[in-house]
Design a protein around this nucleic acid. Structure first.
Lengths: 162, 162
DNA sequence: ACTCATTACCGATTTCTCTTCGGTTTGAAA
DNA sequence: TTTCAAACCGAAGAGAAATCGGTAATGAGT
C-alpha cells in the first residue's frame, strides 16, 4: 500500500511539529528541524506526496455548533460478506453525524463516533442510520461524557541521531 | 464552561474551512468566507480566544512511524470515586501510546485508543498500563483494522443566510 | 579509493501573504 | 435622529513563502 517510506530524524521532527501545530510557519519549522527554509519546504512537500502527511485539520469545540451530545455506537453486522461490509461503509460515509469510524476485530465490527444535537436526535439516528439497516444485526450505544486527544504521537523507529 | 459563544454564518464557514484544511491561507479563507483579509483575521483570532478553535493538527500515516498496530481498550474501573477516576486519567496522560481517551457511560468507563509497535507491545501495554493498575477492574481489547475520519463536521444551528 | 550520478541542501531573490492601523459603515439603543 | 460600540474595509509596511542556480553530501559501481 504505502511505498515503504523511510523517515529520518528530521522528517520525524517535522511530522511531530506539524502534528502539534499544523499552522506553524515554514520558517519556524525549518529552524526547529535544523534545516534551511527551502530544504524544509521541500521535505514537507515530499512528506505530503508520500502520503505521510495526509491533511491538516482544526480542532473545534462542538458546543458552539449545536452539538450537545456525542456517542459511540458499537455495531455488529448480520453477515460479513464483502458486499455487506462495503455497503455498510458506503452508507456510513453519507451520514453527516458520523465523526469517526473504527473497524474493529472482536464481538463488534464497528465503533462509530457520532455527534448529535440531543438525545432525541441520537435516538432517531440510531434507528435510521443503524438499526433499520439490513446489514446491521445489533447495536449498543454509549454516551461520551468527554474525550481527550493526545497530540504527541508515538514514534517507534530507531533513528541514528544527527 | 464556555462563554455562551454565538456563531454567525460566516464564523461557521470559517470554522468548517479550517476544519477541512487548517493550512489554508488567510487570503483564501477571507475570500471564501466573503470577508476582507483583515476582518477574517480578526474573526479567526476571536474564535481562537473564545476557544471555539482549539488547535490545528496534521494527520499522519502511522505506518512510517513504526506503528504497526492500533487497538481500542475498553476499561471498567473497580470503583468510581472521584479520586480513582482522576488518578486513572492522570495516569493515562503519561502513557505515550495513548492516542485518544473516550470517557463513556455504559458497561465500560473508558474507551482508550492506543497505537503500538506490534502485538507483543500491545500485550505488554495492556498489562503495565491497564491490568496492573489498582483502579482498573477489567479490560477488553479490540484490534483496530482501520479507521476513517470525517472532516466535515456537523453543524446544528439555524443561521439566517446572508 | 575514485568516479559518476543522484539526491539533498543552502542562500539570495522575487513574489505573495500577513498584520496593523486609521478611517468608514452598520446596527442597536436612547 | 443622535450616539456609541462593534464590525468592517483598504492601504501599506513587514514578513514569510516559493523558486532557482549553484554547492555539498551520498552511495553505487568499478
Amino acid at each position: 500500500m504505502s511505498k515503504n517510506v523511510e523517515l529520518d530524524a528530521k522528517d520525524v521532527r517535522i511530522v511531530r511539529l506539524l502534528r502539534k501545530n499544523a499552522r506553524i510557519s515554514n520558517k519556524e519549522l525549518a529552524a526547529k528541524a535544523g534545516l534551511a527554509q527551502s530544504s524544509c519546504l521541500e521535505r514537507v512537500r515530499r512528506l505530503r506526496m508520500a502520503r505521510v502527511l495526509t491533511g491538516y485539520h482544526a480542532d473545534v469545540d462542538p458546543d458552539p455548533l449545536g452539538i450537545g451530545l456525542q456517542a459511540m455506537v458499537a455495531v455488529r453486522l448480520a453477515r460479513h460478506a464483502r458486499a455487506d461490509v462495503e455497503a455498510f461503509e458506503r452508507h456510513l460515509e453519507t451520514v453527516t453525524e458520523v465523526v469517526t469510524i473504527f473497524h474493529v476485530a472482536g464481538a463488534n465490527d464497528y465503533l462509530v463516533h457520532v455527534a448529535v444535537r440531543d438525545s432525541a436526535h441520537l435516538r432517531e439516528l440510531a434507528l435510521s442510520a443503524f438499526t433499520e439497516r439490513p446489514e446491521v444485526d445489533h447495536i449498543e450505544t454509549q454516551l461520551i461524557f468527554a474525550h481527550r486527544r493526545n497530540h504527541e504521537l508515538p514514534v517507534y523507529l530507531d533513528l541514528e541521531e544527527d
